[in-house]
């Protein structure tokens, strides 16, 4: 189909584009590795005191840390994906150029973001994950099908991640500047995706809420799928529900936004 080729080309462009920033990639790998080390030792100390915290043993806690570092850039858990560029285009009015094109705005940016995510998973994620696996006891699955489920969970996580960031980016049509929302998104994203601590460890009502929010679909759920801590079907259903909700919301907001394109600087 003609349009499938277009969006594949857009995704390939997203991949190449991020691949061209080699220094940034190297710096990112270094940062994620160092952060992983800090977190691993913190977690090890914590799990020494409270074994089985959140239902994880030590090896699982360590695996969780490295998985978080591996996915941090790919899933843009604190932002920094294509939405940065989209916000800038809306702010400057360049978005008008995109609207002249015979392409769907949301699919276009989604394709670009998936291309970016694919590169960052390989370019920034693999090394920290290997470091973790080589130097620490980890709990990785031996069954092949678990890895396949994990890959599916990752794809769904990428859709949810994009869904959130796309909505945040479109808010610039009304707010005219994305700095504030980006910061809110960053704080919420880092905490509620489980980058600080696995969401499993939070008790009571707060824990329930945290595990039901869309950010949980990004790191917590894929981690549990990988470590066999959750029923796969339920996990996918949870992720897919959020992906659909967010993407549909994105479409609705998009049509409202493009209707009000008074376009800055016309």
């Amino acid at each position: 189909m003609g349009s499938a080729r277009l969006y594949l080309a857009v995704a390939a462009r997203g991949f190449r584009r991020y691949a061209s920033y080699r220094a940034a990639t190297a710096a990112g790998v270094f940062t994620n590795t160092v952060f992983g080390l800090i977190l691993v030792y913190t977690y090890l100390a914590l799990w020494d005191e409270r074994p089985d915290l959140g239902g994880y043993d030590q090896a699982q806690a360590v695996t969780y840390v490295w998985l978080g570092q591996c996915l941090f850039a790919a899933l843009a858990l604190q932002g920094g994906g294509v939405e940065t560029e989209l916000m800038e285009r809306i702010r400057t009015g360049e978005i008008a150029v995109d609207l002249y094109r015979p392409a769907d705005l949301q699919l276009w940016w989604l394709a670009g973001d998936l291309g970016r995510a694919a590169f960052q998973l390989l370019g920034r994620g693999v090394v920290p994950f290997l470091v973790g696996g080589l130097f620490f006891p980890t709990a990785l699955p031996t069954r092949f099908d678990t890895w396949v489920w994990f890959a599916v969970a990752l794809l769904l996580a990428a859709l949810v991640s994009f869904g959130i960031r796309y909505l945040v980016a479109l808010s610039v049509f009304w707010l005219l500047d994305g700095t504030g929302v980006s910061q809110v998104m960053m704080i919420l994203g880092v905490f509620f995706s489980g980058m600080v601590l696995p969401l499993n460890v939070f008790p009571g009502g707060f824990g329930e809420v945290a595990r039901a929010l869309p950010w949980a679909a990004q790191l917590q759920v894929p981690a549990d799928v990988l470590m066999g801590e959750t029923a796969v079907a339920g996990a996918f259903a949870f992720q897919a529900m959020w992906a659909v909700l967010l993407l549909v919301a994105g479409r609705l907001v998009q049509s409202a936004a493009t209707r009000r394109v008074v376009v800055q600087g016309g």
Binding site: G2, L6, R13, R16, R17, A96, V97, Y100, P102
Partner: peptide
């Protein structure tokens, strides 16, 4: 239709010129 803005570009600034054309090729089928 084709649109040209003097003050804006329809090209992708971080890609070689030819890559933008390749995207146009797909976009406009």
């Amino acid at each position: 239709i084709g649109v040209v803005f003097g003050q804006r570009t329809t090209l992708w600034w971080d890609l070689p010129l030819i890559d933008s054309y390749k995207l146009m090729h797909r976009m406009y089928r």
